[in-house]
Design a protein around this nucleic acid. Structure first.
Length: 671
DNA sequence: TAGTGAGAGGTTTTT
DNA sequence: CCTCTCACTA
């Protein structure tokens, strides 16, 4: 007979756990992991095992027989939440994947789908992305006839920025406008008017923008005691990652969620706060203990990522920050190579250097996907991309244009959106203007008819349009949409029909349609993952699939690719070798940040984030001649002599901390 | 009123 | 450089 012992589910002593936490973690990490009650703040320096700590804490909670569904892990991207849950499952077991996790936005979405009526919304509200929100603003502006004015009136993007900043920082629109855009002070009344109409519009049309998700979740929690307590009871163990990048609103939500138990752990690094343009405030992390008076504070200072020479440089970078920090990272990883610093003649030579060096590194045994090139803004990599293509070096690029923001994708999705929410008139407008002979003006008239009879789409074929040239097209669209209402159809089936319908206009509309067809196929593949249309549309906005995800068909072994990434998208990641390019005033720090000191402080933190991504090799590159960028008046044939990035020159012993590399051009043999 | 073409202006980072 | 706007034409 075989003996089989059922394990006792509650392990009272450390020795009884499946995982030997003491051996796996250092003292501070251990403390953070095993202290499971009460508020906790973990200040985790770059590479100090922050993610590891969170993962082990999830495992520890689960091993203590805590229902995974009562653990909430709020992270910066959903990808990182999933990755953490995957790793936790790996060190323990499947239970860890049942943890609730995601971004503040996706969590808000999840909650609001349940409780929408309590904040006066339909549960099937639509979420609009930034572009759509701006279009709404624009149409309101047009309605108020503010676009025809003699004086300069802020653009839709600017107006949206003002409104968004005001919500995220919880300060009035007036203050934002006067603080950040004093030159528009005269337009304050009209901006306020637009802002109010925008709010009304969204409610009427059952639409939320990114900020509304947070606002409405906040309101739900604030105004309904029972709901608040119920939710707080459900999520008894809350963890928030990257807390330095949360804004006021998110901090409030986190506190409300913990109202019943104060079991909340926040993790972050004030030196790595890089999202203030989105309303994030790194002081949140400092204020946490005052929000929860008995907070336990743990600081993780040992760096497990980078070699000592790299860490010495990164410490020196952050040393110059205006606000002084209490931690200083150290590393046990020896390394003889200092970070390399080199100047190239121009952008072309910079790209050549990287192309060549990347290939050498690969020869030395570093896989391509362990190498990254980081830059301040997406377009900084353009020239490099050309070089990589010439050399046949495969790469993926993160950051910059989103798949879901491409015009043809938005076109297709607009048909899907009206299926999901017939009040979504931005989507109606977009789809209708795709038809020949229909511009904004007729589109609006048709939308008005549709909204009158929102149960079906018969407004599309209202008799007053019968004599118009485009009536046949409307009938065709009506037939299509009506047939797609069939509840047995899955999103992918619906999408397929929409794409077939859309293809003729698509080919007419875009000269380069051949290049774009691939994207439609990708979208179709993505759609197959979803059971409901609403889920799919929400995901496309909240978690925009990036190009790399789209290229899933090439999941074989040799799809090792060099990583190109904006620094913002590189947050939380690490690579064996890292190149930081365009270390030139005006590029990095960006010219836009020069106006305000606090922006410059953030640029420095951004540079710190970039440099701390490197494990073994760090290459800093400054091209000496750059294409003229905005803000520089160097009428020298479009080029300027570049000033090296101030975050390098301000370091006193820079020359000792780095190894200068001098580029030599190979001499061609004349014979 | 739709569709087109020229000119100007503003250029980051992302849920 | 790329997008948005405005004015013109059909």
């Amino acid at each position: 007979m075989k003996k089989y012992t059922l394990k006792k589910s509650f392990a009272a002593e450390i020795g009884k756990y499946t995982i030997d936490y003491k051996a796996e973690l250092n003292q501070q990490q251990f403390k953070a992991v095993t202290n499971i009650h009460g508020p906790q703040l973990v200040i985790a320096g770059a590479g100090s095992g922050k993610t590891r700590t969170l993962i082990f804490r999830v495992a520890f909670l689960v091993e203590n027989n805590i229902n995974p569904g009562s653990i909430l892990l709020l992270t910066f991207t959903r990808k990182s939440a999933q990755e953490m849950m995957r790793r936790a499952s790996f060190i323990l077991d499947e239970r860890c994947s049942k943890v609730a996790g995601g971004t503040f936005h996706s969590f808000a979405n999840y909650m609001l789908r349940k409780y929408a009526p309590m904040v006066q919304y339909h549960p099937n509200f639509s979420i609009v992305d930034r572009g759509d929100a701006e279009d709404i603003i624009n149409s309101i502006r047009a309605e108020l006839a503010l676009n025809k004015k003699e004086r300069r009136f802020p653009r839709k993007t600017t107006i949206m920025n003002i409104i968004s900043k005001s919500t995220n920082k919880c300060i009035p629109v007036e203050d934002v406008l006067i603080d950040d855009y004093p030159h528009f002070e005269e337009e304050l009344d009209d901006v306020l008017k637009i802002s109010n109409l925008y709010r009304k519009y969204k409610r009427q049309k059952q639409v939320m923008d990114y900020d509304d998700l947070l606002v409405n979740l906040g309101n739900l929690l604030k105004e309904n005691e029972q709901v608040r307590e119920k939710i707080s009871d459900t999520y008894r163990y809350i963890m928030v990652d990257e807390y330095q990048d949360t804004n006021k609103l998110q901090a409030e939500i986190a506190a409300l969620l913990a109202c019943k138990h104060s079991n909340i752990m926040v993790v972050g690094d004030d030196s790595q706060s890089i999202y203030s343009f989105r309303g994030a405030n790194f002081r949140n992390i400092m204020d946490f203990p005052s929000m929860f008076p008995d907070t336990t504070i743990t600081t993780l200072e040992q760096n497990y990522r980078s070699t000592r020479p790299i860490l010495e440089l990164t410490n020196a970078i952050i040393e110059n920050a205006r606000e002084k920090y209490s931690k200083k990272l150290f590393s046990d990883i020896a390394g003889q190579e200092k970070p390399a610093y080199l100047k190239t003649i121009d952008e072309t030579e910079q790209a050549e250097f990287i192309g060549q060096r990347v290939l050498e590194l690969r020869e030395e045994g570093v896989p391509l996907n362990k190498i990254a090139v980081l830059f301040r803004a997406s377009w900084h990599a353009n020239e490099l991309e050309v070089e990589l293509k010439n050399r046949n070096i495969p790469y993926v690029k993160y950051g910059g244009l989103k798949f879901a923001e491409a015009a043809h994708i938005k076109d297709v999705l607009s048909f899907m959106r009206v299926l999901n929410n017939p009040f979504d008139d931005i989507a109606w407008l977009r789809s209708l203007t795709l038809l020949e002979g229909i511009g904004p003006s007729y589109a609006n008239k048709i939308v008005a008819e549709i909204l009158k009879k929102s149960e079906d789409f018969s407004g599309l074929i209202a008799p007053q349009f019968a004599k118009k040239k485009f009536f046949a097209d409307l009938q065709k669209l009506y037939k299509l949409l009506s047939s797609l209402k069939d509840p047995t159809l899955k999103p992918a089936d619906q999408l397929e029909k929409v794409i077939i319908y859309y293809t003729p206009m698509f080919e007419l509309l875009y000269d380069d349609y051949r290049r774009r067809t691939g994207d439609l196929d990708s979208l179709l593949r993505i759609a197959q993952r979803y059971k409901t249309l609403e889920e799919m549309l929400t995901d496309v906005v909240l978690e925009p699939p990036d190009m790399s995800q789209v290229g899933v068909e090439s999941t074989n072994k040799d799809d090792e690719k060099l990583v190109l990434s904006t620094i913002h998208s590189a947050k939380g990641l690490e690579w064996h070798s890292v190149f930081i390019i365009h270390l030139v005033e005006g590029y990095f720090p960006s010219a836009r940040s020069a106006e305000r000191e606090e922006n410059m402080e953030e640029e420095r933190r951004l540079f710190y984030v970039a440099a701390t991504r490197a494990q073994r090799n760090l290459y800093l590159v400054t091209p000496e001649i750059e294409p003229r960028s905005w803000g520089y008046h160097d009428d020298f044939s479009g080029y300027m002599f570049a000033e090296p990035c101030r975050f390098l020159t301000e370091i006193e012993n820079f020359n000792e901390l780095t190894e200068p590399w001098a580029l030599e051009i190979e001499k061609e043999d004349p014979f």
